[in-house]
Every structure is written in C-alpha cells, then in structure tokens.
Write a protein that binds this DNA or RNA. Sequence first.
DNA 1: AACCAGGCTGCGC
DNA 2: GCGCAGCATGGT
Length: 304
Amino acid sequence: MNVATLSLPVPSLFSFKECLWFLNRNYDDCMHRLEPDGIIKAIRINNKNVILSVTATNNHIEATLRSNALSKKLTSEVSDYITDWLDLQRDLTPFYDLLAKNKRLAHMQNDFWGLRAVGMPDLFEALIWSITGQQINLKFAHTLKRRLAEAYGTTVIFNNQPLYIFPEPEALAQVDVEALKKMQFSTSKANYIIGAARAFANGEISKEKLSLLPDFESRQQALTQFKGIGIWTANYVLMKTMRDANAVPVGDIGLLNALAALGFIQNRTEVAKIEKLFKQFRGWESYLVFYLWRSLSNPLSDGK
DNA sequence: AACCAGGCTGCGC
DNA sequence: GCGCAGCATGGT
C-alpha cells in the first residue's frame, strides 16, 4: 500500500466542521468513519480502491491517500473527487445574500457559516441510497445501507477496522429479491433496487449519460422512467450527484419539518407557500434544502 | 401501542 | 392531470 498526500486550498465561506456535522448525524453511516480530526473513507475511482483520510487546517484541506495503484493521475482524480464531494468550487456569496434578505433564514449565515452541500459523487450509490430511504426513518435506512454494503460491497480493512465501498451495479444486479427481503427490504424496494442495478449494469443509465442531457427536466425524466424512482428520489439524486441547483426533493418530510419549525408553513399541504419561498432562491434551491435540513439540528451541536 | 418515517404505485375521477 | 388509498417495515 502506497501513501500520498494532497492539499487543497479552502474557498472562502468554508467550514470543515460544518461539513463534518453533515457526515456525522449519529446515524452510523457505513460509508465513512469519523475521527477526532477528520474523516476516513474508502472510495473506488476507475476501478482502483483508495483509502482517503481528510482533515483541514484554517487554510487547507489535507488528504492522505492509500492505494496499491497510486499515480499522479489517481491523485489528481482524488483531488477532483474531494472538490466535488465537499462542493469546494462554489462561491456561496450569492446564496448568503439571499439568506440575508429573509428574516426567518438570515440567522443561517452565521449559525451554519461555511456549510457546503456535501454530495454523493457516485450516482449509483446515491440512487440506491435514496430508494432505500423512501418512507422509512433514517436510522433504519442506514441499517439497511450497511447490510447492503457488508453483503455486496467491498470491505477494506484500515487500522483493524472495516471501511466499505458501495456495491457495484453488477453485484446488486445479480441479487434475488428474497435475499434483500431477508435484510428487511420491502418486496417493492427490493425490486426497485435490483431493477436500478440492472439498468446501471447494462448501461441504460449512467452518470455520463445524465450529464449529457440538456436540462434538469430531461435528467429528471431519465430517472423517473424507472419503477420506484419518483420525483423525490430523482430530485434527491440530481441534487446530491448531478449538483442540479434547482433540484428540490418535493414532499421530503425533513424539508417540511424544517419549514414548519421556521414558521413558513403550518401544515404539509401548503405547497404554494413553499413554492413562494423557493422562488426567492432561484438557482440556489438545493442549497436552501440543504441548509433547511441543517436547521433540524441545533447550531453548534454535533449530533441531531 | 398508536403513530410516524428523507415515498411510490395504481386507481378512480 | 390530481387526489388518495394501500403498501411494507422498523423506530419511538
């Protein structure tokens, strides 16, 4: 195993601590492990496994890479991965200006200062995760994801502890419904997941294909054509992976709870009020969603 | 123990 | 096109 390091300058309006908040919401997410000073994660890039440790100083994000296939190219790809994952390239100034204009949201500039929309660069992982999380509580959803990762993903041992790389589409495409049901996936979800895995495995859908589509609506349509992928799931994925700025996971229970807690709505049916709010955030809708999710946790708390 | 959870499908209008 | 029941399965 070879080791390399890389260093990325942090953008303005960036807080590593706030990003770690998102990654550590007491949900036992198997896709990474939190350490006192940063985060450890195993990823696969171009069929090469990499163990990634990420920490930050005031000025830089420092990453340590461990891999059997280290090269300059791989290091550069990992650098791109981190940039995408933590959304480092975005200038948040316009978003913060919009927050400042809304009296119920203005506090977020300070309370969540520097929070980036932590994404999911792997489209397949994002899609399976969002299907898994449909209509069940997040804790159970993480339990299910862990079972998938343990059974069908790649396990990498680091410091005597396992790290997981999410299952490849080819692996999940061959699973039968009964196996997933034993893991306590519902019958329909098991079918959705296997269907999605097959669509990825046979090339019907891919991140590249989605990225070549001309607009948000066509990307959304490309996803919702599959059984089990509704508007919530499609928009969640477009937000987390494709970085569609105007993707809002409509109807999301966390979103609705946050809007209610901040006094924007009294009940879950007040769609017009929600649309009115999001109209004020054109181009930053998905960022607003992320910050609203953040508001479900108290400022400066490290859990939920 | 009832109600809820980061929804989706299929049906009736 | 829109509303809504029915669904499946743990968590609190």
